[in-house]
């Protein structure tokens, strides 16, 4: 995902009227003030994380609170967590009514943190 916009834009190169086209590198492309919607717009934000949310499927009662409270839209409606972008804020674990979500330190094994 992400920053292949420059490549796309270069194909839409528009000839500027009344201006002689100089030889310029092909990859600069056509500049515009528009931004393109993209996932991971500041890169893989998962690297910001110190604690990682881990879902215990047996305890989970599928109330979907973690899904709607996640500020980053990293938990899908079928409760899969996208660790590429999860920033590890911990809102999901704090709000989980059955304590099925727990925060595990990044370099430890799953479940090793215990509770």
């Amino acid at each position: 995902m992400g920053r292949d916009f420059a490549k796309d834009r270069s194909k839409e190169r528009v000839k500027m009227p009344g201006r002689k086209r100089r030889e310029e590198p092909e990859e600069i492309g056509f500049l515009t003030t528009l931004s393109v919607p993209s996932e991971g717009s500041v890169g893989l934000t998962g690297s910001w994380r110190t604690f990682r949310p881990v879902l215990d499927g047996e305890r989970c009662n599928k109330c979907l609170l973690c899904w709607i409270y996640c500020p980053e839209a990293c938990i899908s409606k079928d409760l899969r967590i996208n660790y590429d972008y999860c920033k590890g804020c911990g809102v999901c674990a704090e709000e989980c009514p059955t304590k099925a979500m727990s925060m595990v330190k990044e370099d430890e094994e799953e479940g090793a943190a215990g509770d």
Binding site: G40, W48, P71, N82
Partner: peptide, 18 residues
């Protein structure tokens, strides 16, 4: 609202936008 934005951890603004 696409994931991987520049919001802080636990940002209320992005949660409200969603």
């Amino acid at each position: 609202f696409l994931q991987g934005s520049a919001a802080c951890q636990g940002c209320p603004g992005s949660a409200a936008l969603r």
